[in-house]
């Protein structure tokens, strides 16, 4: 059973896009919070982990069908996101970007520790949404769950685009991103926007965790790695840019898989980071980031 070079390339691309979709979801979550608070939410990976584990509990332990358990899991993690804002971010007396970042780091430890207490240290499996029989495509294979991952990314992009362009709330969030002081002058409650941004990115993170768990399993300490990858994707695409986050995530996934397949799997993460460094030095605002926006930001 030989495999042609073209099929191999196709396989690397498919896998890269699947993995990259998850990074993209994490990166979008980072951006939403960054845009409103200018802080990097280090607990973003924890949302992904929680999404996966809560889904396992609902789907496997309580045996609730996917159609119901998926929104329920997202809802649970969204509540965690809201609590994170209410208990860790809002109470800070004099919030600076850095103190918010450290608060999210502290919160991420707390969430990880709690998850370890609830679920233990072992990984959990989730049955794929539509079977495990791979689909053949010109000598390459696609896992059905991979299609779900990509599909959910597409849906998320469409929904969020509509949300940011068509709704008052979405527009208010965008206004905060451009200039929080001016937005509060026109009557936008920035504190509420912070809360909404945490809820929204928790929901997006949870979705990422839910769709990836059938492929990669999930355990309590996986969040940190995903957060790092997501943050790199964010920086590559241009921090603060929604399209940039999606592009960055997909690119990092692709570079990893092509790098591992064609050059060296030991150094695959190095390639992605070298590309990131090159982009930062050549076009510092990231691939799709705007220089104007980054000038207003303090961090």
């Amino acid at each position: 059973m030989e495999i042609s070079f073209a099929s191999q390339l196709l396989q690397y691309t498919i896998t890269g896009i699947t993995v990259g979709s998850i990074y993209a979801m994490v990166a979008v979550g980072f951006n939403i919070i960054y845009n409103v608070t200018e802080a990097i939410n280090f607990a973003q990976g924890e949302f992904v982990m929680l999404g996966g584990l809560v889904m396992v509990f609902l789907r496997v332990t309580l045996n609730i069908p996917v159609v119901f358990s998926l929104p329920m899991a997202i809802l649970v993690v969204t509540v965690v996101g809201i609590l994170l804002d209410r208990l860790a971010i809002k109470p800070i007396r004099k919030p600076s970007v850095l103190s918010m970042i450290i608060a999210t780091i502290g919160a991420s430890f707390l969430i990880r520790g709690a998850a370890m207490f609830i679920w233990g240290k072992n990984p959990f499996d989730l049955p794929p949404f539509s079977g495990r029989n791979p689909i053949s495509l010109f000598g390459a294979v696609v896992q059905p769950q991979g299609l779900w991952v990509i599909g959910f990314l597409v849906i998320m992009v469409i929904v969020l685009t509509l949300f940011f362009d068509r709704t008052i709330l979405g527009k208010a969030l965008r206004a905060c991103a451009v200039n929080p002081k001016a937005s509060s002058l026109v009557g936008i409650n920035v504190k509420h926007m912070v809360l909404i941004s945490f809820a929204l990115s928790a929901a997006i993170g949870a979705l990422g965790g839910i769709v990836i768990t059938p492929i990669s399993l999930m355990e309590y300490d996986r969040g940190a790695m995903l957060a790092v990858k997501g943050f790199s994707a964010c920086a590559l695409g241009g921090i603060g840019s929604f399209q940039g986050a999606v592009t960055g995530g997909l690119l990092i996934g692709l570079i990893e898989c092509l790098g591992a397949g064609l050059i060296s799997s030991g150094y695959k993460d190095v390639f992605a980071m070298l590309v990131l460094l090159a982009v930062l030095f050549i076009k510092p605002s990231g691939l799709l980031g705007s220089v104007e926006v980054s000038k207003i930001k303090k961090f």
Partner: peptide
């Protein structure tokens, strides 16, 4: 999350 590239 995935080792498909190496296996391919």
């Amino acid at each position: 999350t995935d080792m498909t590239a190496q296996l391919t």
